[in-house]
Design a protein around this nucleic acid. Structure first.
Lengths: 231, 231
DNA sequence: TCAAAAGTGTTGTGCATACACCCATGC
DNA sequence: GCATGGGTGTATGCACAACACTTTTGA
């Protein structure tokens, strides 16, 4: 079989930055690395691409392995290729980020990885360039969420407006005026009010809403301006 | 030296999508591929990453080889990893797009590649998945240009408002109201009017402007809304 | 004087912001 | 009855879109 001559093959890994939201805090799922080097240090979940597997496929596989979840919101973030980013062997990493409904994740699925959720502000030191990747992912999510309704991917089927608002406040790490917030959200027409209330957070209870999936899909590409523009 | 076991190294290439604007049309620079397979077919300019070279570095090198230009606007677009995208050998391609001032490009620089500029609408069939990459790059540029002043990268130091407007019209393939356009542009404060006029396009002549580089840098990250929102 | 492109203002509308109080309920 | 969080309305200003005519000047 013919090959390109004089080229150095390298390893290609896919790493996944997995975000979740428990109703209070935005969280990141990281694992204790199982192999040398830096075994047992905190790391993003990742793996090498298999033969016959494309990048998206590898990301889905890795996510499935760790979380047991299919059909997750997954987006390619960036490729990292510093020659020395992995001290053992040259490895180019293609990084994806995922937004999952944390309630669908069950710790039992795969305990071999010693996975743990950390609040975003309390994420420990990660191996290699993984901290940089996480920062880039947060920047991208803030950018995207300001224009497109991606944060719903983090919520369960039923959620309340206060939960949603808190999520935005977590992502942007700043308070939001709730009258204006509600107006924007309702104006977008993305939510369907349910009869049921969540009474866990207050005496009065907050109405549950669900996402109008048709509209969500239809409006995903248009610019929605959920977030006040920074002056 | 220790290595990861049981992994298949693959080739990693960097391909560059190079845009230029000649004052009339948005154009793409492609080359006639020099090596088998599909030798002599139209292709993006690319190359394999060298040892000791990171991805951005490889992109810069490739761009320099073809155009002779340093300090070009260059942005990573996406990584492509379909197992069979290159029929010879598994190759993951990390794609960058570049916006250059076409006047700085001189064909003499490097004629071995048989490079040619094509109007965007007349780009020929390219090898492998390169057409898909170009489409993705255009989508991204439209997205970016609607919010951030990136298109100035395509213009020479001195340019006229009609040129600039035509560039936006090329990118979005639709006419723009020039009163509203001028208002937005001047309101942004990004342009500095020069005394000189370009008399080549009309009897009356159009004033040259240059970019206020301070403001351009400062405002690059903020949302500018240059383009009317699609309803 | 005419053709061809450059340049210029106004108005209406909708959207974003700022801001403070009442509501419902369980204890 | 009171404490806690949920929910609601209005006034103001700004930014955008729609729209047509005058200016300049070389031929």
């Amino acid at each position: 079989m013919v090959k390109y001559i004089n080229q150095n093959p390298v390893l290609v890994a896919v790493d996944c930055i997995i975000f979740g939201y428990d109703g209070e805090h935005l969280k990141l799922l990281v694992i204790k690395r199982a192999i040398e080097p830096v075994k047992n240090q905190w790391s993003l979940m990742g793996g090498f691409i298999g033969p016959g597997e494309d990048l998206d496929g590898a990301a889905k596989r890795i996510l499935l392995e760790l979380t047991g979840l299919h059909d997750v919101y997954l987006e390619q973030l960036h490729a990292y290729g510093q020659p020395d980013r992995d001290p053992i062997e040259r490895t180019v990493s293609v990084v994806y980020f995922a937004l999952i409904d944390i309630h669908k994740y069950s710790k039992q699925i795969n305990d071999q990885y010693h996975a743990e959720w950390f609040k975003l502000k309390e994420v420990p030191e990660l191996i290699f360039d993984h901290n940089i990747m996480v920062k880039a992912a947060m920047d991208k999510i803030r950018y995207q969420a300001a224009l497109h309704p991606i944060l719903f991917e983090l919520l369960p089927k039923k959620f309340t407006i206060p939960q949603l608002q808190n999520l935005y406040e977590q992502v942007y790490d700043s308070p939001i005026d709730n009258r204006n917030f509600i107006r924007k959200i309702t104006a977008s027409g993305l939510l369907i009010k349910l009869a049921e209330k969540d009474k866990s957070g207050s005496r009065r209870g907050a109405f549950y809403f669900k996402l109008d999936k048709q509209k969500h899909k239809a409006q995903f590409q248009s610019f929605l301006n959920f977030i006040s523009k920074p002056k």
